[in-house]
Simulated assay, not measured.
Amino acid sequence: MIGKPFFDNMVDTLTHRILVTGASGFVGSALLQLLEREHVGWEVFVLGHGEGRRNLIDLRDREAIDDAVREVHPTALVHLAAVAAPSDARNDPRHAWDVNVTGTMNLAESVMRHAPEARFVYVGSSEAYGASFQSATGPVTENTPLRPVDVYGATKAAADLMIGQMSYDGLRAIRFRPFNHTGPGQADTYVVSDFARQVAEILSGKREPVIHVGNLEAERDFLDVRDVVRAYAIAAIQDSKTGPDCVYNIASGRPRRIRDILDMLISQSGIEIEVRADPKRLRPNEIPVACGDASKAHEKLKWTPLVPFEQTIADVLDYWRRICSAR
Results as ranks from 00 to 15, higher is better:
Q186T: 05
I258R: 15
V213G: 02
P209N: 04
I323Y: 06
W320R: 08
L306H: 08
R53P: 09
I313R: 03
E208K: 15
K206Y: 10
F195G: 03
Q238F: 09
H73T: 13
I266H: 06
V78A: 00
P86D: 07
V228S: 02
S295F: 06
D278A: 08
A81C: 01
T182K: 05
A231D: 00
V78M: 00
E36I: 13
R220L: 06
R70A: 13
Q198Y: 05
R220W: 03
T15N: 12
F195Y: 14
D98I: 00
S24T: 10
L47H: 05
R62K: 11
M1K: 14
E43V: 06
E274D: 15
A159L: 09
A158R: 03
V46R: 10
G243H: 01
A196D: 11
M10V: 12
G292Y: 01
D160V: 04
P86H: 06
R53N: 13
A118T: 00
R62L: 10
T75W: 08
A64N: 10
P116T: 02
Q165I: 12
R147W: 10
A236F: 05
H212M: 07
Q198G: 04
A158K: 02
I202C: 00
I273V: 11
K206I: 10
N249K: 02
G50Q: 13
H212C: 03
V247S: 12
D293N: 15
T137V: 11
T242R: 02
H16Q: 14
R175V: 10
R37Y: 13
H39S: 12
E219T: 09
R256N: 07
E36R: 14
K241Q: 15
A231M: 01
T137P: 09
K4R: 15
R147L: 14
T13I: 14
N91K: 13
I174Q: 06
E142I: 05
D58K: 04
E63T: 09
N91S: 12
A30F: 01
Y152H: 02
F133R: 06
I323W: 05
Y232K: 09
L262H: 02
I202S: 00
R90Q: 01
Q134D: 14
R226W: 10
M112P: 03
K280G: 09
G270M: 06
A30P: 02
A218N: 11
E43S: 14
D12L: 07
E117T: 14
R254K: 14
G243V: 01
R113S: 09
Q134I: 14
T137D: 12
F309V: 07
H212I: 02
Y152A: 00
H298P: 01
M112H: 04
R60K: 08
A277R: 15
V40H: 15
F176W: 06
R17S: 07
E272F: 08
L32C: 11
G214C: 05
N180D: 12
R230W: 11
S135R: 15
G130Q: 07
V316W: 00
T102Y: 13
L282V: 11
Y122V: 05
P116H: 03
P148C: 09
H49C: 15
D260F: 04
